[in-house]
C-alpha cells in the first residue's frame, strides 16, 4: 500500500518535471549531441549528404591560423571582465557612500546595459573614428600628434573593443556590487575604523573579502557571457580589419552561417565549450584561496 503511494508520488513528480525536461532534452541535450556527431562529419547546412571524415575537422582546427588568432583575440577580450569588475567595484564603493546625485549617477552607469547594443556600437564607432572622431580630436588637442587608430588598425582594434565592452558591463556589475556592499555589516566597518583602519584598509580588508562571493559569481558569469558574445563585434567590425577582432564565437558564426560548414563550426564550438569548462574549473579550484563565504 505504502509502496503504491510512493510510486504514485514519484510518478506525479515526473509528470510535473516532464514538460521542462522534454524542453531541455529537445532544445539543449539533443542539439548538443548532434553537434558532437557533426564534429566527425563534413556536413554542409542544407546538404543532403553527410560523410564521416574521422578527426579531420579536429586536425584542421589545430592547423588553422585563424583559430589561433581567434583564440588570442578571445583572451584579450576576456581581459575586459576583471578590468570591468575592478572599475565597477570602485564606482559601487563611491556610490554606496553619501555623494551628490547618487541616484542619477547609478542610473547613468546602468544605462549602457539597458541600451540597444547595436545603437551604442555605432556611437562608439563615431567616437573612435581615427581622423574626425572626438576621442582623437581631444588627444590631438592635448598635444598627441599621432593618436591611436582605434578600430582602424589591427594592433589597437581589439583593445578598442575591450573598452566598449568594459563600458557596457560596468553598470550591471556595479548594481550587483552595490547590493552586495549594502549587505556588509556596518559593525564590521565601525570595528575596523575603531582599530585605526583608514578608508583604503577598510575597503581592502573588510569590504573586498565580504563581497568576494559576489566577485566570484560575477567573474564566472562575466567570463562566460563574454566568451559567448559576438553581436557587438559583428555590428562594429565584423571581425576586421583583417581578422584582428575575430573571436572564437564570431569564428563559429561565420563558419556556420556564412560558409555553411556545420561540421567544422561544431568542432570550433566544442573547442570553445572545452575552453569555457577549463576556465570555470580553474576559477572554481582557485576560489578556495580568495572567496570568503
Amino acid at each position: 500500500m505504502k509502496n503504491n503511494w510512493i510510486k504514485r508520488q514519484r510518478l506525479t513528480g515526473y509528470v510535473f518535471v516532464a514538460p521542462n525536461m522534454i524542453g531541455v532534452l529537445v532544445f539543449f541535450i539533443l542539439p548538443a549531441l548532434f553537434s558532437l556527431v557533426l564534429v566527425f562529419t563534413n556536413w554542409q547546412f542544407g546538404s543532403q549528404s553527410m560523410n564521416f571524415i574521422g578527426v579531420k575537422n579536429i586536425t584542421r582546427l589545430f592547423k588553422d591560423p585563424v583559430f589561433y588568432i581567434s583564440l588570442k583575440n578571445t583572451l584579450i577580450f576576456l581581459a575586459s571582465v576583471p578590468i570591468s569588475l575592478m572599475l565597477a567595484f570602485i564606482v559601487a564603493v563611491v556610490l554606496n557612500k553619501s555623494v551628490y546625485f547618487k541616484g542619477l549617477l547609478r542610473v547613468l552607469y546602468f544605462m549602457p546595459y539597458i541600451t540597444s547594443g547595436v545603437a551604442t556600437a555605432f556611437v562608439w564607432m563615431l567616437l573612435f573614428q581615427p581622423s574626425q572622431g572626438p576621442i582623437n580630436g581631444f588627444l590631438r588637442s592635448i598635444g598627441i600628434e599621432n593618436p591611436p587608430g582605434w578600430l582602424a588598425t589591427t594592433t589597437t582594434s581589439m583593445f578598442a573593443i575591450d573598452i566598449i565592452w568594459i563600458w557596457f558591463m560596468l553598470g550591471y556589475f556595479m548594481i550587483i556590487y552595490l547590493a552586495a556592499l549594502q549587505e556588509v555589516p556596518a559593525e564590521l566597518q565601525e570595528a575596523a575604523k575603531m582599530d585605526g583602519a583608514g578608508t583604503y584598509k577598510t575597503i581592502r580588508h573588510v569590504m573586498l573579502p565580504m563581497v568576494s562571493p559576489t566577485t566570484f559569481m560575477l567573474l564566472i558569469s562575466g567570463l562566460i557571457m563574454t566568451i559567448k558574445t559576438f553581436g557587438i563585434i559583428q555590428a562594429i567590425t565584423q571581425g576586421g580589419p583583417g581578422n584582428s577582432t575575430t573571436i572564437l564565437s564570431l569564428f563559429v558564426y561565420k563558419t556556420a552561417f556564412s560558409y555553411y560548414e556545420m561540421g567544422y563550426a561544431s568542432t570550433i564550438s566544442w573547442a570553445l565549450f572545452i575552453i569555457i569548462v577549463l576556465i570555470t574549473a580553474v576559477q572554481w579550484i582557485g576560489q578556495k584561496k580568495w572567496v570568503h563565504y
Binding site: M125, P130, G240
Partner: peptide
C-alpha cells in the same frame, strides 16, 4: 583610406 572607410561605414 580603407581604415577610415571601414570604421565610419
Amino acid at each position: 583610406p580603407l581604415g577610415e572607410q571601414l570604421t565610419s561605414k
